[in-house]
Amino acid sequence: MYEKILFVDFDGTVTSEETLEGILRRFTDPGEYAKGEAEFRAGRIGLPELLTYAFSTIPYSRMEDIMEYVRSVELRPGFDAFLDTAGAMGIPVVIISGGLRSYVEEILEPYREKILDVYSIDSDCVDGYIRLLPEYRSDRELMNKTAVMKRYDFGQSICIGDGYTDIIMAMAADTVFARDVLAEHLAKAKKPFYRWGDFFDVEKVLKEL
């Protein structure tokens, strides 16, 4: 039983840009991805199906190129200091990502001793292309972040996120740090949150909670 626990998104939160979106923009065939997007916007498929389809158009031989791209993206400032503060306060940190395990774990390796658990999406090669193997998929999410949250016993949940895929997690959390699309959604939903720019902002508020 944890008194407090932190659930943190990876793409666009730990990283300084949306790496998952960046991968799709750089490595999918624009025409093929446009077909998937049209199906998604028409409501014929959900986000999990769109992402699964998009990755299935990327040759597995491009995995190293994907890794090189993600390695080139800077982490959001203050991440290491934030982990130190959370550790000093006895608040475990759980990273929950809809990104590929191969790059999520590599990027987080230098900080792994400061992180309780990391959840991300496994992948495989099928007929020469990338196949996603999500363990916590739901109808609405490729990575069902609230299902991961339910694995833990806690008194207060704190989530940090930035995008559309963090909305359900944020709505379920007791305390939320939000930016970008997530902040816009929570403001409309009248869900209280702390607006943040980097992890130094989070660290400052965390000390006062």
Rank of each mutant, 00 (worst) to 15 (best):
R195M: 12
E208T: 14
P92A: 06
D180N: 13
Y119G: 00
A38F: 02
T15N: 10
T52M: 05
L186W: 00
D198I: 07
A88F: 11
Y136E: 05
S120M: 04
D127R: 14
T175G: 02
E37P: 00
L24K: 10
R195T: 05
E37V: 12
A34I: 06
G36C: 11
D166I: 11
M89A: 08
E135N: 13
F79Y: 10
E141Y: 01
I160M: 11
F40Q: 01
D139P: 02
E64F: 13
A86I: 09
P59C: 12
D65C: 04
F79V: 07
L209E: 01
L100E: 05
I130K: 00
L116V: 01
L116H: 13
W196D: 02
S72H: 04
E113N: 14
P134Q: 08
M169I: 08
R25F: 11
A42D: 01
I121N: 13
S120T: 11
G43V: 05
V104I: 13
E135G: 06
I66K: 02
A38G: 08
R179I: 03
A54D: 05
V93Y: 09
Y69K: 10
M89R: 08
P59F: 08
A178L: 01
G90L: 01
E64S: 12
G78C: 07
D201W: 05
D174M: 10
A147R: 07
K150R: 15
E17M: 15
V14H: 05
I167V: 14
E68M: 04
Y33P: 11
S120P: 09
I58A: 02
I95M: 07
V104D: 09
I107Q: 09
Y194H: 13
Y194S: 00
E3K: 15
G161C: 10
